[in-house]
Write a protein that binds this DNA or RNA. Sequence first.
DNA 1: AGACTCGTGGAAAAGGTTTACCATTCAGCC
DNA 2: GGCTGAATGGTAAACCTTTTCCACGAGTCT
Lengths: 331, 331
Amino acid sequence: MSNILDVALKARVSIATVSRVVNKSLHKVNRETRERVLAAISELDYRPNALAKGLLMKKTMTIGIIIPDISNPYYAEIVRGIQDVADREGYAVTLHNTDNRQEGIIRYIYLLREKAADGIIFSGGIINGQETLSVLKELREKVVVIGRHDVDFPAVMVDNVGGMTQAVEHLIEIGHRRIGFIGGPDGSTTALDRLTGFREAVTGGGLTYSPRLVKKGTWNPESGYLLGTRLLKARCRPTAIIAANDQMAFGAIKAAKELGLTVPGDLAVVGFDNIPLSSYFNPSLTTVEIPMHDLGAAAMEMLLNLISKESFEKSRLFETALRIRGSTAKA
Amino acid sequence: MSNILDVALKARVSIATVSRVVNKSLHKVNRETRERVLAAISELDYRPNALAKGLLMKKTMTIGIIIPDISNPYYAEIVRGIQDVADREGYAVTLHNTDNRQEGIIRYIYLLREKAADGIIFSGGIINGQETLSVLKELREKVVVIGRHDVDFPAVMVDNVGGMTQAVEHLIEIGHRRIGFIGGPDGSTTALDRLTGFREAVTGGGLTYSPRLVKKGTWNPESGYLLGTRLLKARCRPTAIIAANDQMAFGAIKAAKELGLTVPGDLAVVGFDNIPLSSYFNPSLTTVEIPMHDLGAAAMEMLLNLISKESFEKSRLFETALRIRGSTAKA
DNA sequence: AGACTCGTGGAAAAGGTTTACCATTCAGCC
DNA sequence: GGCTGAATGGTAAACCTTTTCCACGAGTCT
């Protein structure tokens, strides 16, 4: 691997001049000389060593993403949004899956510091991360969080409460009176917000909020299936179920089907997120759309501002949109 | 951010000793001294700077992944497999989406070289990457590829031909005689293998291979929907459709449904990959399972061998498994 | 002629680490 | 008292870059 000195020798100039050419410095370089340098660079296939550069400049053009699990389409979509912006701006991205383990999170934070990442985007995960987040705070890292507002980092938020209200109002409008809810796990602020939205909308809509119709899952289809089965086997079966994400909604539909119920005939189901496959599901899933890609992109933009201009944008809020499809019908 | 000298001063030892402690060197360090150093480290929250270390040791403990698109569940699952192994071994992973653009690929290869990544895992993408791959070759990077065998890098392979044979034989067995095929795009070796497997199995099973029953899509549900519609609207409609991946199978099922056909009653559908949601689909999707997570994990293991022991493992082959579910039934 | 600008060279610092080499110290031992 | 071995210090090189400072030569302008 050739270095800057090799280039300088080959072009018969000094390393200072090579650097001037490479970094398009303000110092003028004679056109002829520049071309000689450029030729040497291309001949030697020279690239400045990013480690050395990073060490000196205290800038690595790398950021880290910490999420629970990339194989979850929700996070995959967010990561894609982050990457599209990062890539455009010349940043590389390292990815870290926590599976919601706290030690993992802390380990990654330290790892990213060792590697001198320019910033971190943090999404998902459970609340007792307070300790974790204070570690972040101490390290004075540039951090943007997605989907939580319980910490004072710049945040990209989704109107989960509003979205859930849309879902509930839709069901009420088409005549449902007993609505089951499959929520997310305790400790997740997203889960909490969606539950809150559900409760408020239910009571606001003139129904009674019944804790027996509310279950807490773990975001995956299996738990939707399990809890859906439980809801549907109860004495007083709901005529509609809202799941706090699409995967659990899929599980609930499977449960209904296995119990001989048709969707939306016997049971209406509403999801949340609008993951890419949900419109292809059968029946196509009525769901509350979250602009996941934009969430990621916005997070990266905020992080860039934080890094470069030091401008501190407190938060950005994204609205949801109800997508009414085939999984809901009149009660 | 404190450095090794700060620690040395605080512990009243030399930087040599600190380094001996940190790197568990063979040199003996007195227990008392070691503890003093450790105390200083924890007090100062010291971490060796990975950039400096990488620069000196020519080892960054970072590898790069180049794939078409992380929001595709197939790649997300593979990436997860890679990461699980990488993480266990202390490697960080940078992710790069190409969207199948060649310039992107080449840019990322150079980027990874600049950053002195210890290796690259390459999956997906189209064949005219020959140029791309020769760039890789020149750079003498440590590379492992997943899902292609047309280049002489260590490769993790899937028996696509065998898998497709399983799918065809299953359909023939339950009485189907006209089988449509929705393949992947030209240029993809995976698509080619799956098509080859289809053709061979069809003729091997005593049916005639009809090019009119074969369409080429782009892996996404939209193209499955489009081509499924086209197949089903043709004069001589197939009684079964095999899609080269699950997403396109979902699209085909949607097409069937919109044309008033029931699955599996009027049309049997088989997918490929077994992405996480396919068993929750309705009807649950009969598909050829690929151990995506293991593919990723194996690729990372091979890369580690390449990096450390310099052992060159030519390739690893994974078998598929037919998952018979609700989307196929007797003709 | 003297002053000035332009393009470039040369040298050095800084960033933080590992490692190699040698020197030194101290304790224990013959 | 002198030797040995263990533990540690001190120093320097190496990794590669950017940037700064100063100098210098050649040409240009007044």
